[in-house]
Amino acid sequence: MSDAPSKRWPDGRPDALVSPEALLAEERLAFTDRIIGLEQQVKELQAVSRLSPSETVAAEANIVGLKSSLTWRAGRMVTLPVRVLRHVKRRVLG
């Protein structure tokens, strides 16, 4: 506990300094976080769904909503020539 005399902070307060054991514990926390973070990054890159059944259905509904929006349909119209050209190029060049 901080029972050191009220000198100018933080001078003369060895109890407020971080011990080597505490530093080690902080490093262990950071290490655990790093492992979890990397695991999650790998899962983000995997093809398998990370969503629950409810989330899956909601996400699919969002996509359906998006694809039926005016913005989406207008975008499809605008990019139609490019997509046609790309398709033809693939057909011709293989």
Binding site: Q40, L51, A58, N62
Partner: peptide, 10 residues
């Protein structure tokens, strides 16, 4: 880390 888990607020 979480992008795919944070797409839909339910």
């Amino acid at each position: 880390r979480w992008s795919r888990r944070m797409q839909v607020e339910l």
